[in-house]
Each structure stands twice: as C-alpha cells, then as structure tokens.
C-alpha cells in the first residue's frame, strides 16, 4: 500500500522534472533574454523569497487574499442558505444577482479605488466580490438539492427549524458548498494578483509587475513561480480540509471504499457538482469574468 503510494508519487514527479530539465537545457542553449536558465531564476527566487520579501510582500498578499476569501465564504454560505430556503426571495433577487455575477470583478477596480482608496480594503473588496458568486450559487443549489425525504424525516420528528437548517440542510449541502469554495479559492488567488496591478504599494503581483517594468526578467519569473507555488499549496490544503469534512460523502458516493448497494443506487442519479474540469475552466476564465456555476437562482428543482 505504502509502496504503491510512493510509486505514484515518483510517477507524478517524472513529468514536472522532465519539463524543468528540458526548459533549462533549452534556455541555456537559446540564451534568450526573456527566458533565463533555471539556475538564474532559482537564484533570484532564493534572494527574493527566502525570506527577504516574505514579510513585506508575500504576507500582505496572502492576508488580503485570505480576508477576501473568508468574507466571500461567510457571506456566500449564509446568503446561499437563506436564498436556497426562501424561493420567493430568490426569484426576487435573481436579476440583480445575475447582473452582479456577470460583472467581471476587475472592471470594479476603478470604482473600488475611488470608494475604498488605494489601501487594503479596495483589494479585499475585489477579492471578496469575485469569490462570492461560486460559493453563493453553489450553496443555493446545494440547499435546493437536499433530499426531500431527509427533510420530511426531520419534520416528522419535530426537529426545530434552526436545527433542521444547521444539522440537516447545511451538512447535506456541504458537498456543493465545498465545490463552490474550491472554485472561489482559485478566483481569490487570481484576484489577489490582479488587485495588486493597480494602485498597490506591496504584494507579490506588485513585485512581479515592477520587475517586468524594470526589465528584471529573472525576478519577474521568480515571482511568477512563487504565485504558482502559492496556488498549488492552497489547493492542496483545501483538498486536505475537504477530505476531512466530506469523508462521509466520498464514502457514500463510492469514491474510496467498496461500493455498496446504496452507492450504486446513488451513482445512477446524476449529481450536478462542479467537476475538476469545470474548476479548471473557472480558473482560466475567472480573471476575465464570472465563474461558471450551475443554473440560475430561481430554477427551483422542486417546490
């Protein structure tokens, strides 16, 4: 078992290593100013990010990103639970929500700079706004998709409304909420960088942009590599958290663990969840516009 895991790890490392070696060989031969060899980028990376600029640029970036993300998740889940439970409200608010989510967040940079100034608030606002929609809309769908039998059960045992919401609806919607939160995380990281391209005085995105303007190409690449690593690390962290929180879900849908009668039954029903491929699409298109989510708010699956 463990040996098999190690084998998988080794296998997964082969392609990245080949790419790196290939790039390095090519860059050394080509001698292109814009594509320095790995050693140069690596040296710059060590100079900048181990750990001189960590407190001055990396930590402020991450703090803003996490703040914006936390706000987005908190508002998205709470508002999504409300909208998912109250059909009338969802219908009434749908046009506004659809409009807001269709706004590409970067277009709000000028407005947010005017309203919040050039400080952290404008950037946190932008990140929160962009990351909000996938969480909100997935939560709404998750709440709507809760099995009616479970709700009947809770009602027939006279579970109070509050407990029904927190201990039945919320856990049942959690897989969808996590799917939304994962898309939102990618968007938050993108907007972290985007928000630093205008009116910033620190941050990784700001550093990369300054390096590019000063034709300090290795430093630009070092910052870019760092951003890639940040995205990778946060995604890995997210997956670990999700695995803990949704262990039951992976078990009950047969991902890991032997399939049971029930999991087979479950698989037959289509489960609309943001798949990894769609997440990837979301990452690519997020900077440019809204995140893809399922359906519009008022298309109630059942009454």
């Amino acid at each position: 078992m463990i040996r098999a895991r190690l084998g998988d790890w080794a296998l997964a490392l082969v392609v990245p290593l080949l790419l790196l070696v290939g790039y390095d060989l090519w860059a050394r031969g080509a001698g292109d100013f814009f594509f320095p060899p790995l050693s140069v980028i690596g040296g710059n990376f060590a100079d900048d990010w181990l750990f001189e600029r960590v407190p001055t640029d990396l930590l402020p970036s991450l703090a803003r990103m996490l703040a914006g993300y936390a706000i987005a998740v908190a508002i998205g889940v709470v508002a999504g639970m409300v909208l998912g439970s109250l059909r009338t409200l969802a219908i009434a608010l749908d046009p506004v929500l659809q409009f807001l989510r269709a706004l590409p967040p970067p277009t709000l940079i000028p407005v947010s700079l005017l309203v919040f100034g050039a400080g952290d608030s404008a950037k946190i606002f932008l990140i929160a706004l962009g990351a909000l929609w996938p969480v909100l809309l997935n939560t709404v769908d998750g709440v709507r998709g809760v099995d009616p039998t479970v709700l009947d059960m809770a009602r027939s045992y006279r579970i109070p409304a509050r407990a029904r919401l927190l201990r039945v609806v919320l856990p049942a919607a959690l897989p969808r909420i996590f799917a939304g939160a994962r898309t939102a995380l990618a968007i938050a990281i993108i907007l972290m960088v985007v928000s630093e391209l205008v009116g910033a005085s620190n941050g990784v995105g700001h550093t990369v942009q300054l390096a590019q303007r000063g034709f300090n190409i290795p430093e630009m690449w070092a910052g870019t590599v760092l951003l890639g690593l940040v995205g990778f690390a946060f995604n890995a962290l997210f997956v670990a958290v999700e695995r803990r929180a949704l262990g039951w879900h992976h078990g009950s849908t047969g991902r890991g663990g032997a399939p049971t009668r029930r999991t087979r039954l479950r698989r037959e029903r289509p489960r609309p969840v943001l798949t990894p491929t769609r997440t990837a699409v979301a990452v690519e298109s997020a900077a440019a516009g809204p995140a893809p989510t399922e359906g519009s708010v008022p298309d109630a699956r059942r009454q």
């Binding site: 039998t149 009947d152 039954l265």
Partner: peptide
Amino acid sequence: DYSRSLLPW
C-alpha cells in the same frame, strides 16, 4: 424510502 431518510454524515 428508508435509506434516503438516513443522514449519511
């Protein structure tokens, strides 16, 4: 629908 009336979590 007994199985759907149970909480999988």
